[in-house]
Amino acid sequence: MFEKLRNIVLKSGSTAQAGHHGSEPHVLPLKTYFAVFGALLLLTILTVVVSVIGLPQPTAIIVAMVVAAIKATLVVLWFMHLKYDDRFYSLIFIISILFLALFFIFTSLDVFTRGQVNPEESSFSQDGLLLRQEFMKK
């Protein structure tokens, strides 16, 4: 895995002369664009339908996010041409998604596990909520 990563970074840093795969850009047929567009519309309709049915709480969010993620990958791979471009650009995009996930994970690591040792400290316990409501009324 590390070897592959190293090659992506090194290959991308083509110094001036190493003109690789010619300058003629990769042109996709029109059909692909409209196919991707169709899929996106279908997925949008799917999310709307799923939400109107009203699934139980935890699955609703997961389904919505999965469908949104599929739509996002479609846009990124085809419309943003990442599928046919230098692998290094996808590496940058994936790194930024990784750091976003990192930010989410470590912050929720704190928020969800508050008050495990001393229950008073939890923000979701009964008196935690009471204190917050009363504090906001003032």
Binding site: I92, L100, T107
Partner: peptide, 28 residues
């Protein structure tokens, strides 16, 4: 193009703050 992709990486992280604020406000 490389410069643009780096800028987009930054945009993704810019909106990450908003999405995290949404998630935590929703959990509270």
């Amino acid at each position: 193009k490389l410069g643009m992709w780096l800028f987009l990486g930054q945009e993704v992280l810019f909106f990450s703050g908003l999405f995290l604020a949404y998630t935590l406000a929703r959990i509270f």
